[in-house]
Design a protein around this nucleic acid. Structure first.
Lengths: 203, 203
DNA sequence: CTCTAAAATTGACACTGTCTATATTGACTT
DNA sequence: AAGTCAATATAGACAGTGTCAATTTTAGAG
């Protein structure tokens, strides 16, 4: 078997990832140090080096798992075949919003290019799947040739990410009364929805 | 005088900020350590403690200066009184895009809530000025009462920030051929512009 | 049972921020 | 002019960090 269950820990790599995720949720990525993860997993501070060459690799793997979870959630939510492309985009939007609002530290890790390796295959593959899902659905919507689907994808993805990111920084926090964050988030969704509807219409 | 020119350094606080900005541009915020800043300013590693209680305070001041610069640039660019609100928003957009693309490390620092103190007055004041400028111009555009200007501001700000942020992570980098970044950025601007034009029209 | 390669440990190094005590400076008071 | 004193700069120490090297432990093959 490829994953040899060795030593007293069984599968330390998986145990390290679980410990890292726990610490991430509690303490932000700053708390996810090699030594803290090792301590929670019950091993010495240098044990993780056997499974991850450095901290960047550990965090990259952690981020990749989040992208995989997100993609799975999008697929699960849009598996019904009576959904229109616009509805499937809404599913993607909902998944990201819910994920970001529930797990802000996980979400922010996804974009920490200074801590993770965006060019790594394990990260790029699931991220591309999500992105391709979006561009694919947009392509089904747009009829006229004057608009570039990729530009629309960039615009939508930008607004979605920007809203989440700024919301987490507290940029909008006390500028208006958002409590659960949902109403304002749905307003953003409706803006995007209207925009896409507008694109479908002939010029 | 409040700012006493004392000791051999004259105004160490300003010298520290200059050194910090240089290092930021070269090495990202990770390189802006207290000790590195002190070394570049030619003082001992504990000297900055007299002017900034901790690293967070230093970085917060550094970020505040960037917001002040941005606001000044927006004002300088939109001082002509023959500009329409939509044009003034375009100026804000251009200033942010140019600032972000030219100085990515400065831009990213502005949103590192884990490193700077977003509630500090010195930071919140110039940031609010920029944000209020945007909401003010949007308010001039929107006529119908069914749309909340603040929501529109959030949407626009989100798209602008999201595009810059994602672009810096390399999310769009090799998914299409952007070289200078300007064409795609202008496409985003035109999307926002169209959106605002649509809002002006009666329902 | 032995051998071996992977896995885990221990210790060390150069960093970091920040705290303490100490020394220096410059301006104000008497 | 001499002295005082708060502000400013220094040097040293401490607990952290990531990562490297040498060492020991383990699990399974022969």
């Amino acid at each position: 078997m490829a994953k040899s269950k060795s030593f007293h820990h069984g599968d330390l790599k998986r145990a390290l990832m679980r410990a890292a995720l726990e610490i991430l949720d509690e303490d932000d990525v700053a708390g996810v140090t090699i030594r803290a993860v090792a301590k929670r997993a019950g091993v010495s501070h240098a044990a993780p080096a056997n499974h991850f060459p450095d901290r960047r690799a550990l965090l990259t793997t952690l981020a990749a798992e989040q992208f995989e979870w997100i993609f799975d959630a999008i697929q699960a939510g849009s598996s019904r075949d009576d959904l229109m492309p616009i509805d499937r985009i809404a599913v993607l939007f909902d998944v990201f919003l819910q994920f970001g609002l529930e797990h802000p530290y996980r979400y922010q890790l996804l974009w920490r290019y200074d801590l993770i390796d965006h060019d790594a295959d394990i990260l790029r593959e699931p991220a591309d799947r999500v992105y391709d899902f979006l561009t694919g659905e947009i392509g089904k919507i747009i009829c006229r040739k004057t608009v570039d689907p990729d530009t629309v994808a960039v615009a939508i993805w930008s607004m979605m990410h920007g809203y989440l990111d700024l919301r987490m920084t507290g940029m909008f926090e006390d500028r208006q009364d958002i409590i659960s964050g949902k109403p304002r988030a749905q307003a953003i969704l409706s803006i995007i929805s209207d925009y896409l509807e507008g694109l479908r219409a002939a010029p």
